[in-house]
Nucleic acid binder design. Structure first.
Lengths: 364, 364
DNA sequence: ACCAAGATAGTAAGCGCTTTCTATCGCAGG
DNA sequence: CCTGCGATAGAAAGCGCTTACTATCTTGGT
């Protein structure tokens, strides 16, 4: 049915081997022959059979990208950046690699499942984005799976999550065998710390914290940064009482804020785990008749595109998602050398905007 | 290096054929044999070689999804929905198909390029999302390519774009050969019409329109709906003078609004081609010291998640992106029967919120 | 008991491409 | 002129899996 290499070879009056060589350009072929082959390819509208060549060459040009939720710009931006790294920027050259974006929905099982699927496709590389689940069992399973893939030649890159904790078992001397996957991590803790310091310096003392899902590295790191800033300022106890966990979505922000208000009707600021949650927080505050930032300051995290358009514009922490994703993509393709130590940390920058202001009645 | 079918077969004491049959479950295998094979698979941690099976079976389990921009929730939501259709909902069953999300950036060339890449992978199906570019040349090229893919067994589904216009050439009797691709289209024109009628009924007469990129079906349909409503109300001329084209992004909305204001400082409403553009419009108006909706009403389109959180909440037209994407996904997998005529139109619903109100001084 | 129809398992022929190993051809060096 | 080497092209052996086509072994019917 479909046009095959052999058809092209026949048409060009050469052997299949020659056509393959022309197409891959990894073997000397006389100019005349080359153009004859190329013409035949054109005329027949030949398109390589990917699976066949992947099988024969034992390599694939698929790169997997695991995200929690493509519909969330946080991941969408990273995915898009990874993909952009596949195309030889600017040059009209067609990318050889294709990115496969997989939605894990944040579920460990689905994460493993997709890794299996990618392993089956013999993916050239996989990029894991977003925070990791901190369940020991899952971490072990994940490490095992990633190791197998790495052994099979798949490049593994982590983007937006910390490096995998070292294996606890005594399998081989530490660091032996396949090296740990390269990681591009975010300075979540540092960003959160600076954010809280900003609020402290404005005079806030009673701040509610809307944390993300429990047992996630991102959630933990951001919370740790926040608590560290509080501790450094000599504040304590607030811990726990003014922290509520929830999903990274708007309704969690809404509900969480109502809960915080219930716990402390006089709080002067709400720090949300991310911008989307912050939007929900704003909505809840407005519905309660509280003005932002006059009555309550609100802050987000990530600085997604819509943060600047919120009303008031959201004070948040900017994470260069695109840059990080692009870098992860290049690392996956081997276009860029891995950073020393295998871990690159991208800085999180405080973006002060209109949603944060001094509290009505400064600390008593 | 890697474990192969043969290894499993040897371990289980059966032939490779039997292992294949157990794994594919498409041929009777005795219970005892099956479990023996399954055990061997477990023990060896065997993972099928995708390319090899794709080659042998002449089918792949890759489904391509073309989007303009994954980072844009409009596409992210559809992509996520398509992907969700791959997993047998609820059941913990692992999806057999994997979605490959490709970013075309709205460029016709990249669209074709990715289709070639997908054709090379012998994708089981492809879903084209978003509006189509209305360049005759590109349409012809696109139709040709899609036809070839369809002939090769790839299911083609359009989501959010109108069916392909029929071929103009005289190749065979009309409708012969491969049927036109199935399409899930949005009622952009109807939605836009209802939106403009809403504004008209509030008393607006001088409305600026921020259209999307020229030569795109989505842009044209939305604009047509708007103009139709104006015409029905006996308004004319405004056409053109109060319409500016731009990209589907925030800055186009910002700049476009300034341009509209320059053309008519007294306009009472700005209709944006989509929610993101509307956000930019709001920002521009605010920067000009105009209040929304007291001085100028603003409307969006799509009802993306953030629309309700804008301040004021955006009056917009809701398009059930997730439902549409999921349906497209099911059609692509053949899980759902195609609609009669091959075209399903999803309704666009007017969402009246706080950003639209009667103009300060009603029509004179 | 004997033969046919199931039910299972094995054999082997590819799927379309890559790649090593050979085979030619042409020409410089001696 | 003959040897030899560089530059090209072809032959053919798989890559790991699917799937007719066979082969074998049970059963049921009578």
């Amino acid at each position: 049915m479909a046009v095959t290499l052999a058809d092209v070879a026949a048409r060009a009056g050469v052997s299949a081997a020659t056509v393959s060589r022309v197409l891959n350009g990894n073997y000397p072929v006389a100019g005349a022959t080359r153009s004859r082959v190329l013409r035949a390819v054109e005329e027949l509208e030949y398109v390589v059979n990917g699976p066949a060549s992947a099988l024969a060459a034992a390599t694939s040009d698929l790169v997997g990208v695991l995200v929690n939720d493509v519909a969330d710009p946080f991941f969408g931006i990273m995915a898009s950046a990874v993909q952009s790294a596949m195309s030889p920027e600017g040059t009209g050259t067609a990318p050889r690699k294709m990115a496969i974006v997989c939605n894990t929905g944040g579920s460990p099982e689905r994460e493993l499942m997709y890794l299996t699927l990618l392993q089956r496709q013999r993916a050239a590389a996989v990029v894991l984005t977003g925070g990791a689940v901190e369940d020991p069992e899952h971490i072990a399973a994940l490490r095992a799976r990633l190791r197998r893939m790495a052994d099979a030649g798949t490049t593994v890159v982590l983007c937006g999550r910390p490096p995998l904790p070292p294996a606890g078992d005594g399998t081989g001397p530490d660091g032996a065998g396949t090296p740990a996957p390269v990681a591009v991590t975010f300075d979540n803790s540092g960003g959160a710390k600076r954010l809280t310091q900003h609020l402290l310096s404005l005079g806030h003392r009673r701040m509610g914290y809307l944390a993300g899902p429990v047992a996630r590295t991102t959630t933990r790191h951001r919370l740790e940064g926040h608590l560290a800033a509080l501790a450094a300022a000599g504040l304590k106890e607030d811990t726990g009482r003014l922290t509520v966990y929830g999903a990274y979505d708007r309704s969690s922000g809404y509900d969480g804020t109502l809960e915080l208000l219930r716990r402390d009707p006089d709080l002067t600021a709400v720090l949300a785990a991310n911008d989307t949650v912050a939007l929900g927080a704003c909505a809840a505050l407005r519905d309660r008749g509280l003005r932002i930032p006059e009555d309550v300051s609100v802050t987000g995290f990530d600085d997604l595109p819509f943060a600047v358009d919120a009303a008031p514009a959201l004070t948040t922490v900017r994470i260069p998602l695109y840059e990080a994703g692009a870098r992860a993509g290049r690392l996956a393709l081997g276009t860029e050398d891995p950073p020393p130590g295998g871990v690159a940390t991208v800085r999180a920058e405080l973006m002060v905007r209109a949603s944060s202001a001094p509290p009505r009645s400064p600390a008593r």
